[in-house]
C-alpha cells in the first residue's frame, strides 16, 4: 500500500488519536472502579452480613463506570480500522 504525504498525515493523525483516546479513556474508569472497590471492601468489613448486597452494588457501579472505557475502546478501534 503506497500513501502520499497528505494521506499519510491523515492516517497518522487518526492513529495518534486512537492511542490518546484509549490511553486517556482508561484513566477515569480505572480510578473510578478502584474507588468503588475500595469503598466496597470497607463496607463489607464493617457490615459483613450485607456482603452479597454490597458486592452486587459494587459490580453494577463498576459496570456503569466501565462504559466510558468501552466507548474509548470502540472509538480507538474505529480510528485504527475504518479511516
Amino acid at each position: 500500500m503506497n500513501l502520499t504525504l497528505a494521506q499519510g498525515i491523515v492516517k497518522a493523525s487518526a492513529l495518534l488519536g486512537a492511542g490518546l483516546c484509549m490511553g486517556m479513556g482508561a484513566l477515569g474508569p480505572g480510578i473510578g472502579e478502584g474507588f468503588v472497590a475500595g469503598k466496597a471492601c470497607e463496607g463489607i468489613a464493617r457490615s459483613p452480613e450485607n456482603a452479597s448486597l454490597i458486592t452486587r452494588t459494587m459490580l453494577v457501579g463498576q459496570a456503569v463506570s466501565e462504559s466510558t472505557g468501552i466507548y474509548s475502546l470502540v472509538i480507538a478501534l474505529l480510528l485504527i480500522f475504518s479511516t
Binding site: 480510578i31 478502584g34 472497590a37
Partner: peptide
C-alpha cells in the same frame, strides 16, 4: 501512539487498584 496508549492507560488502573 502505542506508547501513549499503554502509558496513559495504566495510570488509572494502577492508582485505582492501589486504592
Amino acid at each position: 501512539a502505542a506508547g501513549l496508549s499503554i502509558g496513559f492507560g495504566t495510570l488509572g488502573p494502577g492508582t485505582g487498584i492501589g486504592y
